[in-house]
Structures are given as structure tokens and as C-alpha cells.
Design a protein around this nucleic acid. Structure first.
Lengths: 250, 250
DNA sequence: CAAACTTTCTGGTAATACCAATTCAGGGAA
DNA sequence: TTCCCTGAATTGGTATTACCAGAAAGTTTG
């Protein structure tokens, strides 16, 4: 059967169909899919093809196969596949403040002298970049990534890198960052230096504080740059949120 | 062949082997993998099994299969592109410890009574899930996501969700988690309750501490489950890393 | 020499058989 | 009755074999 047409990858068609079934809610999380032999009959394909389709779902973490029992729905598709679409610049920076603060703290305890030397050089480059207003901020990016790398944790590094790159996904956000960056160039160097000093001292708490202070300043810059562009509404909300957090933490 | 041991999922072993070959640089991007029939002979498995393994790689975007021609390397498993394939379970949990600790702290200051009610219910569900060893851990997942959602920060939520789902991308990591989970079911309920209490009190520092303690226990479970599977090498390294961090932070 | 044909790989699918783990109904024991 | 155990039925795991279709290389032919 199915010898007529020349689908390449019949299993993909089946996987897509099954994906649709999952999305339709017909098979809730935890429920069991029909047996391979049944699916083969129902979809008029061979059992190897069914197995291939199920494996495709399994690799994507959608189902879990238990020997002698069946294939069970583990997670529904369409949930959190793509990270962040309408992530605002504020939320992004807030997340960075939290996460990169911890990354800096961990890095302070794990970093080698080579890591430190690299970061020192990057601070130097950042200072040079800030000299001419038209310069890029690639050194800035490398600075944050180098710290994340010094944690010796790929998951941390990937997360930091992804959050940074998300800044550019929204034109508005990118513009906002650019504007904010021009507003306060001078402090930036000192902030980076403060982070570097804390890392040099291998002091995790100081590193966390310095990184948070830095990103907090970035947040301030965003808020400042916002008042002419967006609603003061979001601005007040963000401000209130920060204060609430600060008060409860103190 | 291979009738000796009772591997569930032979294809995963093969996929892992092939992944290793890719990482070793033996097959550069653009090169062609040996024919299915050759691989079957070389690895002493049947062709269907080879096909399944290649499909697993294909779904992950590592290879591209051309009919009548062969399977070509599309991307190497190592570095950039899609976040984290070779992220180890340890690194993943370490990152979660850092990030979700902060997420819990922020959530404690921002959450509404509705958020709290939802989380309370999820803790109940987790307790029920833990009753039967075969149950899923979907309530556990929802628990962590609900806290992340309560931060009112999409970037934080996406990050937490992504880190959770990454657990399933590596068959090894998933297996390790499963094993660790069976090892210590009892403490989990108390840990979740502790987090809930801290959130109830709107105490960010307590929430952070409770979440960290929870994930620290998860890390312990992973280390425990590892000693029979992998080298004690990685285990010692992780342990040393944690101690260094703990000492410097204290 | 170039175009067309032919052989030979290579992947795509089907069909079948048997093993192993799981499930569950049924029966025997406490 | 209740509990436990056994064994058949179910289900996934692999192996084999066979044949089709697309692609590539080799050969023949104009």
C-alpha cells in the first residue's frame, strides 16, 4: 500500500498528523496513544513507519514510550517552543538583572586567571568603544558572555547569550537601547570596572551586587529614554515593581 | 544480534554513538554518513534501527536525508545555533538553581492571591502524582512554570520553561532525571511545601532559599543516580564546584 | 564528444516473525 | 473474602527479507 505516491518521509506526514491530534486535545497529557499496530491500521501505513513517527515525537519530548505499555503524552506542542516574542525591553533587562547577577556570582568562584585576563581586556575595549559615539557594543556583549562562560556552565552561557540577543529582535527595543546608551556613557565604564574588581577579588556577593547595579542602571536608562516614546504607564508600573521588590528584599 | 542485554531503545544508543562521531569531527558539515546498510553492519544492528537513529538526528536538525543519495551532516552538535543539546543534566540543574531561585524571589513580591491559589493546588497535585511511581511529573512542571509566571515577566517565564524542557532533549539526561526521581520521592513534597510557605509569606529571601534548597536536592539526586552510570570524575568535579561556591558565598 | 541508456547504489516502506516487558484476568492459597 | 501468584494477551523492541523509487556512476550509442 501507499505505493502510489512518492512522499519522501512518510513518517513525517504521520508525525504531523499525530502532532495535530495532540494539539487538538484529543490526547491529553498523560494519556496513552493507540498501540503501534492500531495506528498502522488506522493510518494505513506499516508499523516501522509508525515507530519512526513516534520516535520523532519522542525526540521532541512530546511523548514518552514505555516498553510493553505504550506511548504516553508527555507535553503538548505549541506551548513554549519559541522563546519570547513580545518581550519588552524592560522585562528583558529585569530578567538579565536577576540571572546575570547570579552568573557573575558563580563566575567569581569558578573563573581562572585566563578568564580574568580576557575580561580585563574587554573592559578596556569597552572604554575605547565608548569614545566614539558611532561604535558598536560588541565588546559589551563579549564582556557579558565572557562572564557567563566563566561559570563553566553551558546552560548559563546559552541563557545569557539568548537574553542578550533577544534585545535585537524588536526594532523598538533595539532603538530604545541605543537611545539609552547614548544618554549615559560615562557611568558604564565605571560599572564594568566595578564588576571586574569584584571578579578579581573572587567575591561572589560583590560580583552579584556590581552586576545588578550595572543592569539596574541600564533599566534606569531605559526608563529615562522611554518617557518621550512610550506611555508613562508602563514606566510607572515598572518602577513600582522594582520598588516593591527592593523593599521586600532589603 | 544484540540479544544479550535488554536495552530499551537501541536506536538511542546508536544515535548517541553517531552523535559522538559527529562531535569528533569525523564527519564534517556537508559530508555524507555511511549508507544505512553499512551502518547496520558496522554497528551490528538492523537497518530499521539505523533508520530510527538517523531520524532522531534528523529531527534534531543535525543531518539531512536525501533520497537515493544518503544522509548528510547539516549541523554539528557542539556549539551555537539551537540552545543546548549537549547540556548536561548537572549544568542544567545548576542553572535552574540560580535562575529559578531569583524567579521565586521576584515572584514572592509580585504574585497575586490567584497565583498563590493556583500554586497551592499544584502542590497538592504533586503530592498525588508522587503516590504512584509511574505517574508523570506534569504537576511538577506546572508548579515551576506557575512561579515563573507570577513574576509577571515573560522573559523569566520563557527562560524557566526552556530550561525545564531541555531536560528531555538529551536521552541520557532524561534517564538520569527519571532515575533520580525514583530515588527520593518523599522529600520533594516537603520541599515544594517550603517554597509555597515562603511565597505565602511574600518573603523573597525565604522563597529564594527554599527554591535553591529544592533544586540543590535535585542536584544531589542526580549525583546519587550518577555514580552507577557515569564516571565518578564528573561527580567529583560538580561537587567541588558547589563547595567552592558555597564557601565563597557564605 | 556528447547524449541516452543501463547498471548499481541509496533511501523508503511493507510484511512477517519472534523476543521481552507489561498488564490483567483468573485461580489458588491464607 | 482477600491477597498473591501464575499465565495468557497485549505492547513495544529488533531483526529479516523483499521490493519500489530516486540518484549517481558507468556504458553504450548517436
Amino acid at each position: 500500500m501507499a505505493t502510489g505516491k512518492s512522499h519522501d518521509r512518510l513518517y513525517q506526514d504521520l508525525a504531523r498528523s499525530l502532532l495535530g491530534e495532540l494539539a487538538s486535545g484529543r490526547y491529553p497529557v498523560g494519556s496513552r496513544l493507540p498501540a503501534e499496530r492500531d495506528l498502522a491500521l488506522r493510518y494505513e501505513v506499516s508499523r516501522p513507519t509508525v515507530r519512526e513517527a513516534i520516535i520523532a515525537l519522542e525526540v521532541q519530548g512530546l511523548v514518552e514510550v514505555k516498553i510493553g505499555s505504550g506511548a504516553y503524552v508527555k507535553r503538548l506542542p505549541g506551548e513554549n517552543d519559541r522563546p519570547g516574542f513580545n518581550v519588552t525591553a524592560f522585562e528583558l533587562t529585569e530578567a538579565r538583572l536577576l540571572f546575570e547577577g547570579e552568573a557573575a556570582a558563580l563566575a567569581a568562584t569558578q573563573m581562572t586567571d585566563e578568564d580574568l585576563a580576557e575580561i580585563e581586556q574587554l573592559v578596556q575595549q569597552i572604554a575605547e568603544e565608548n569614545q566614539n559615539p558611532n561604535g558598536t557594543e560588541s565588546a559589551d556583549r563579549e564582556f557579558h558572555l565572557a562572564i557567563a562562560r566563566a561559570t563553566r556552565n553551558v546552560a548559563v552561557y546559552n541563557t545569557v547569550a539568548q537574553l542578550w540577543d533577544l534585545r535585537g529582535t524588536s526594532p523598538e527595543a533595539a532603538l530604545l537601547h541605543e537611545k539609552a546608551r547614548h544618554a549615559n556613557i560615562k557611568p558604564v565604564v565605571e560599572e564594568h570596572t566595578a564588576i571586574l574588581d569584584a571578579l578579581r577579588a573572587r567575591d561572589p556577593n560583590a560580583a552579584r551586587a556590581a552586576m545588578r547595579a550595572h543592569l539596574s542602571a541600564v533599566l534606569d536608562g531605559l526608563l529615562f529614554a522611554t518617557e518621550e516614546r512610550l506611555l508613562a504607564e508602563a514606566r510607572r508600573a515598572t518602577q513600582a515593581k522594582r520598588e516593591r521588590y527592593a523593599k521586600a528584599t532589603a
